[in-house]
């Protein structure tokens, strides 16, 4: 009789333990920080000082959307969301003209993001650039 109760207690404890494991597993996995960069970006490391030479541009991902960082000829950086304000094509940096260019309808923006010629109806959405040592971080405009 006593043995049966003991066995039952053991089975009860064992199965409780196993089940608790199936509950704790997701909890522990949840609490471990995921390796991937957060989608809810406020800051993104866009490039480094050594990666980009003056008078060059680079497309990078700002959250889920493409963005463009430009290193001006004087070595300073400026960054924008890369979608053209005309019809959503991705813009690019033109070293020869030191302008941002949309190939779709020949729209040009200056390095302040202002639409200077062609169809674009308004300036590019600007981002903010922060330097941290050798790294160049980009954040949403505050």
């Amino acid at each position: 009789m006593l043995d049966r109760r003991r066995i039952l207690n053991w089975l009860l404890g064992g199965s409780a333990f196993a089940w608790a494991g199936s509950v704790l597993h997701p909890v522990i996995r949840f609490l471990m920080p995921p390796p991937e960069q957060e989608a809810a970006v406020s800051a993104v490391k866009a490039t480094t000082l050594t990666e980009m030479t003056p008078n060059s541009g680079k497309i990078f991902k700002f959250g889920r959307k493409p963005a463009l960082i430009v290193r001006r000829s004087d070595g300073t950086f400026t960054a924008f969301m890369a979608k053209c304000t005309h019809l959503d094509c991705i813009v690019q940096y033109r070293e020869d003209k030191e302008r941002i260019w949309c190939a779709c309808h020949d729209g040009f923006y200056d390095l302040n993001g202002t639409n200077v010629s062609g169809p674009p109806p308004r300036p590019l959405d600007a981002l903010e650039v922060h330097m941290q040592g050798d790294d160049v971080y980009v954040t949403r405009k505050s």
Partner: peptide, 23 residues
Amino acid sequence: RGLLVSTVLLLVLTIFVALKIRS
């Protein structure tokens, strides 16, 4: 699949708790 595993484990546990209650 995870839900199935968890449910089966729970079922086993439930049976033993029920047995415990009867005892």
